[in-house]
């Protein structure tokens, strides 16, 4: 990887084979499959809701990228501190958040994860380890470093996790954050979901090299570059970096190469506006489906049959439908919320 090309990882015609699950914990894989399905069906529901104008604000969907969050979250605990960005439904759900509260948030309801004050782009579920996601690109990256530094000071072996995209590494603060994390030996895990696109622009039009891990190398941070559509490989790489960070050896950098099936925002595929994004390419990437490949890997060893899978899908689809229905019937925040939540401290009147 010395030329910082992603090679076969960025070639959708490769890595379509069933996932190699030899030696893996089958129960854990089934749990991960369930979680990936849950995320996918939830996002499909959101895509439809947006198309049908039931959702007001923008929704940035990550269908096709589910294995990254699920693989990383398999190595996390509730006392870790996870931060995300504009495309973070998978990040929050993978930490165990309620579907109903996610949907309620996106519909602006008082029962939502952020009490209806954030929508899809400002998600929060700190009790589950999800400290927050915001849409300013790279905005939470230094926050994750600080939460990691706090973890180091607090001594519990917890880590901070910053999910960011390949576009975010073009922001200056990411480079400051990498250097700072390295110099403070903060247990920060930088997870780059390199889906090759920032909004409409392909990475080849934005950066001279495809692999963002070159910035980890420049900052003397250990890195792993993996097929982001292979939950087993994502988890294994995350485990190595997280274990090292928990043991006090400083930050790690995981680059997971993946692809989003929808366009930058909402339910469209953005074929027409995408630079270097063709229907043909999207079609090939769909064959590198992280869910279908895990199912194929399980089926190859006879660990899941068609009935089992169908039952799993049906159950999750029912959960999603139920959560969506419930969220729609929830109440909106009171008008007092306009000004009452600005300060955490009591006694402030403006």
């Amino acid at each position: 990887m010395n030329d910082w090309s992603l090679g076969h990882l960025a070639d959708p015609a490769q890595n379509q084979q069933p996932i190699d699950i030899a030696g893996q914990d089958v129960a854990a894989l089934l749990t991960q499959l369930q979680m990936m399905l849950r995320i996918r069906l939830a996002e499909r529901c959101l895509a439809d809701g947006k198309r049908d104008r039931l959702i007001g604000g923008p929704v940035h969907l990550g269908v096709g990228q589910e294995a990254v969050a699920v693989g990383v979250a398999a190595e996390l605990r509730k006392t870790d501190r996870v931060f995300g960005g504009h495309r973070s439904h998978s990040h929050v759900l993978s930490m165990g958040s309620s579907l109903h509260r996610l949907f309620a948030e996106i519909l602006g309801k008082d029962t939502g994860l952020s009490r209806g004050m954030g929508g899809s782009m400002h998600l929060w579920d700190q009790p589950n380890g999800f400290y927050g996601a915001v849409p300013i690109v790279s905005g939470t990256v230094p926050l994750a470093v600080g939460a990691a530094l706090a973890a180091k000071m607090q001594g519990g072996g917890d880590v901070g996790v910053a999910y960011l995209g390949d576009g975010a590494v073009e922001e200056g603060v990411v480079h400051e954050s990498l250097n700072l994390a390295r110099m403070l030996k903060a247990p920060a895990i930088f997870v780059v979901e390199n889906n090759l696109f920032a909004s409409h622009m392909h990475i080849s039009l934005r950066q001279p090299k495809e692999s963002t891990a070159r910035f980890a190398a420049a900052n003397d941070i250990p890195y792993e570059i993996v097929d982001g559509n292979d939950v087993v490989k994502v988890r294994a790489a995350a485990a190595r970096l997280i274990e090292r960070a928990r043991a006090g050896h400083g930050p790690g950098f995981l680059e997971a190469v993946t692809y989003r099936w929808y366009g930058h925002v909402d339910w469209r595929e953005d074929i027409d506006v995408g630079v270097n994004r063709s229907a043909e390419e999207v079609g090939v990437w769909r064959k590198r489906d992280p869910i279908a490949r895990l199912v194929a890997g399980l089926q190859a060893l006879g660990l899941i049959d068609a009935d089992h899978l169908a039952a799993m899908e049906t159950k999750i689809a029912e959960e999603v439908a139920e959560a969506w229905k419930l969220a729609q019937s929830d109440a909106y925040p009171p008008l007092s919320a306009l000004t009452s939540r600005v300060f955490a401290g009591a006694g402030v009147t403006q």
Binding site: Q126, G139, P142, L143, V145, G146, A150, V173, E176, L180
Partner: peptide
Amino acid sequence: TPVSESACTGAAVGAALAGM
């Protein structure tokens, strides 16, 4: 710290959210 006002301030925000 390193000469990094942006990351240091952001890190303090994150540390504050984590109870410091």
